Simulated scan of single mutants.
Amino acid sequence: MKVWMYPLLIVIGAASYGILSTIIKLAITDGFTASEAVTSQYYTGFLLALLIYVIVHRGVPKFKGSFPVMMAGLFTAITGTVYGKSVEYMPASLAVVLLFQFTWIGMLYECVATRRLPKKSEVVSLLFLFGGTILAAGLIDADISGIPWQGWAWGIAAAFSFAAFVMANQKPVAGMSVVTRLLLMSFYASIVITFLQSPEIVWNGKLGEGLWWYGLILGVFGIVLPIFLFSVGVPKVGAGISSILSAVELPVAIMASMLLLGEHLTGLQFVGIFLVLFGMTLPAMLNRFAWKTKQRLRKDKS
């Protein structure tokens, strides 16, 4: 696989996360709770992962332990739980802004783990991302005084948890295929969700009332696609850059809420989305410029 494909996988995986808050809001509008929607997401995601495993490996899976995969599954479940809670207290666009703080938190995690300072390109990129976030979410002219503190707390908790998920995905497991990793991670996450959310949807008839449809969408875009793509891309790209590339989640979430929930998009929000996308691609552009400069200096010396 070409080098540029790995960052693209991260972008696609993060973009799939962007529609989750809107789908959960639609499920709530249809009479389901956020907890029921999140539970259907993880249960359906596990069943889809199991189906993929059986088709690819043509056998019964062995649920062996692996600490990085277990931790990734744990943080996946925690992120879904606390993110669903934040959506209950605030608009979808604001909830995703709080989740979006994982960009600098993920950079902080990697710097601590590798005992290094952030690169200049990373710092500049985060500044663009932060400024674009404020504009894209419409926070300048929005009245946020009525939002309870629980919403803010759940949203920030989701950011820390998602950054930990990206960090846990950074380390590949020797001898474990991506399909097996997807299955195990979704399995561990489903176990955690059983204790944190609403397992009663399996027997109370809610799935037959239409919840299965939301579970299918959430399972594909919230479990199967992102876990699979992150498992392939993050070990090659690194947690820090992966966090920056995952910034695409914000503009996707805002566009989804505009198209499906009828939320209005202002000119400032368009500018904010542009800044986010620019900040996301800035490290790659700066690294490319530095590489060309080195090549030119080598030619001049020769």
Rank of each mutant, 00 (worst) to 15 (best):
P118D: 04
G208E: 07
F75G: 03
F130D: 07
S161M: 04
L126D: 08
T81C: 01
L117N: 14
F67W: 13
V166W: 02
S93L: 11
V69F: 09
G84M: 00
K206I: 14
L184D: 09
S121Q: 15
I105S: 01
Q150K: 15
V192E: 00
G175D: 04
V192D: 02
V166N: 07
G106F: 00
A168P: 10
A163H: 03
V69K: 12
G73P: 03
V123N: 07
A92G: 05
E200D: 12
A158N: 08
P172R: 09
K171N: 14
G146I: 08
L126Q: 06
V124H: 08
T133W: 12
A158T: 05
L74T: 03
L182V: 02
E122Y: 10
A137N: 09
A189I: 02
A164G: 10
W152G: 03
N169P: 12
F75C: 05
W154Y: 15
G84N: 03
F195K: 06
S66R: 10
W152N: 02
G155F: 03
A189Q: 00
K171M: 12
K85G: 10
V69M: 15
A163T: 07
F102D: 00
T76V: 11
Y188D: 03
A77F: 01
A157N: 11
E200R: 13
P118M: 08
G80T: 04
E110H: 02
R116E: 11
T103L: 07
L99R: 00
A142W: 08
G106V: 01
A92H: 02
V69T: 12
V192C: 00
M90S: 01
I201H: 01
C111Q: 00
V87W: 06
G155M: 05
V192M: 04
V123C: 13
G131Q: 03
G208A: 13
A157S: 15
K119Y: 14
F100L: 05
L98F: 14
F67Y: 14
V178Y: 13
I201T: 01
K206E: 13
P118I: 08
L182P: 01
W154D: 08
A136W: 00
K120Q: 12
L127K: 09
F195T: 07
A164Q: 02
V166C: 04
L108D: 04
M90T: 01
G73H: 06
N169A: 12
G131Y: 03
L108R: 07
Y109K: 06
S177L: 12
A158H: 06
G155L: 10
R181Y: 07
G151P: 08
V166M: 12
V69L: 15
F162P: 05
L126W: 09
A174E: 14
L211Y: 05
L129D: 08
S198A: 15
I147R: 06
S190Q: 15
L117W: 13
G151C: 07
S66N: 13
K119W: 10
V82R: 01
S66V: 11
F75T: 04
A174V: 11
I201V: 11
M167Y: 12
K119D: 13
G84C: 02
R181M: 05
T180Y: 10
L98C: 04
G138F: 08
F130H: 09
L196S: 06
A77S: 04
G80H: 07
M70E: 11
T133Y: 12
A159K: 00
L117Q: 14
V173L: 04
Y89E: 10
L183E: 02
G65W: 13
V97H: 04
A174R: 13
A189S: 09
I78V: 14
T194N: 11
F195L: 05
